[in-house]
Design a protein around this nucleic acid. Structure first.
Lengths: 327, 327
DNA sequence: CTGAAAGCGCTAACAG
DNA sequence: CTGTTAGCGCTTTCAG
């Protein structure tokens, strides 16, 4: 691999001059600059970013750590961050934790060792308080439920839930069920609150028999809508914890000849890829991944600029209603 | 940021000794090793991978460059590679080219500058011959149609097409259409050949009116099945260029009350995420992403070990038939 | 077992 | 404008 010294030798100048020329410094005569560039090209010179990082003490690399990049939701966010980072002249290292806290810790360590300039992290679970601050690195989280004093960014779950419930009410539904996600999920909590509040604002009764929790899985949605429809006063619409659950509900409706949206309105949350397939056509509240990703990068850039002084940023992204065929 | 020199000072030894101890060399007395480890921990020492890479002349980083990580297909492969790389002690840099050859070139350059030890690349288009060899780096491609003498890995499209067509014939379909992808796609070509050959092997006529090309898009599948069904002798089954196209065909069938699979058998290619959704239930030929990813990493490891001598590896992965509700 | 010393490839003062 | 010099943080001989 050829170095600036090789070029210097051939050009008959010191290697400092080569460095200056290649870095576009103004204090190099036009002739030598020309010669050096030409030489560099014809010798096939490739700058060594590692050496540069070492002396400059900056790598121009950021890390994005998510539980599962093959999950379309995270994949979209990751890509948005990546694209924004490109713009800003940063290279991205993407890490996958596989929802494993141990691996997460390991990945964080590796990224610190690689001297990345900042980390965008979607934690797999509750992280030991202080662990992230101890990294001594700019960090932005995709999750607000952290005890630490860190910046975070998230979709506005409250606004999203209101959007969904208001929409159902406008459409004329009156007995709206909440087929939620797991009870402990913070976002699930927020949406449930907003659901109840919105119903009350419209003078609609909140019937706890219409509220259920469960895993974010299709089977869960399928099973729970089955239960709900057996009751004396079944719902005429459901607001689901996410699109996966909604897909289970929709599946049930189709299999049991329930007219959607006439007999049953269905609305999900997230707007995963297949929700917009004509074959599915699920109405949903979209979490705009591109905006989430861009905003995360911007927040991180701000953190990097002001580091080590930490300004905790709390950013909420507006969700978007997607009306399709199920409402 | 604390360095080995700081530790050395506190420990009262030379920093060479600290380096040795921390790297688990045997030629350090047990007592000093102990002291150094303890000190490192309590001082919060984090090795600097950049400095290490510089002197060792290896980064333990590989690059994966794909056109679109948010495409579930590439996302899955990327993740499989990433997981395998983890096992092998490599960190992965993931790059997205957005199907832009210029950006691809740029990303390749950056990866070379980062001194990654190898690159797994899904090219966006035909790359200028020699451009990849000029990188002077181990490279494995997810595409065989390259003029270069490089290693590649791909699913066995021929075997996949045979699998699909044989399956349809076994199910009793006799007029099988090929609703393919774009004509210039190499994989499309191979599948078309295999489709024709398989029909002939079963003494079934190859009717060119049953063969069509088009973009890998739903609307394309939708439009083309519409055409085909209007003809005098319509097909009773379709083998599609990929799942997206198949989804368009399925969509048309559902909208026009065509019984699937009774009146029309449908089989796709790829096995994208939503194909397995109960609401879709598309039969398809799966490209096993995990196998593709693992095999790619293994191939790259072999290339790295034997570098700079290049042994061109040609690896074909066996596809798998997934029978669901459309056949 | 340990220290001294020589770099890895590059940038950044500091003098000319 | 250009050369000299001093590192960045770490690994690795080479002598003790």
């Amino acid at each position: 691999m050829i170095t600036i010294k090789d070029i210097a030798e051939r050009a008959g100048v010191s290697y400092a001059t080569v460095s200056r020329a290649l870095n576009g410094r103004s204090d190099v005569s036009e002739v030598t600059r020309q010669r050096i560039f030409e030489l560099a090209r014809e010798m096939g010179y490739q700058p060594n970013a590692i050496a540069r990082s070492l002396v400059r003490k900056k790598s121009d690399i950021i890390a994005v750590i998510v539980p599962d990049v093959s999950n379309p939701f995270f994949a979209d966010i990751t890509m948005a961050v990546n694209a924004a980072a490109d713009e800003a002249g940063f290279t991205t290292m993407i890490c996958n934790t596989g929802w494993d806290p141990v691996k997460e810790q390991e990945k964080l360590r590796i990224m610190v060792e690689q001297r990345v300039e900042g980390i965008i992290l979607k934690p797999t679970a509750f992280i030991r308080p202080g662990a992230l601050e101890a990294l001594n690195l700019p960090v932005v989280l995709f999750w607000h439920a952290m005890p630490d004093d860190l910046s975070y960014i998230e979709v506005d779950h409250e606004a999203g839930a209101r959007l969904a419930v208001n929409h159902l009410i406008e459409r004329g539904y009156r007995r709206i069920a909440y087929v939620g996600g797991i009870e402990t999920s913070p976002s699930n909590q927020i949406r449930l609150m907003a659901y109840q509040k919105t119903l009350q604002e419209h003078s609609l009764a909140v019937d706890t028999r219409l509220i259920s929790y469960g895993p974010f899985r299709q089977e869960s949605g399928y099973a729970r809508i089955a239960e709900l429809l057996k009751t004396a006063k079944p719902p005429d619409a459901v607001f689901c914890g996410n699109d996966i659950i909604a897909m289970g509900v929709l599946q049930y409706a189709r299999e049991h000849d329930l007219a959607v949206p006439a007999d049953l309105g269905i609305i999900g949350f997230d707007d995963i890829g297949c929700a917009s397939l004509p074959l599915v056509g699920l109405s949903t509240v979209s979490q705009p991944r591109d905006k989430l990703g861009c905003a995360a990068l911007q927040a991180l850039m701000r953190e990097i600029d002001s580091f080590p002084s930490r300004g905790r940023q709390r950013i909420l992204i507006e969700p978007e209603l997607k009306v399709r065929s199920t409402t």
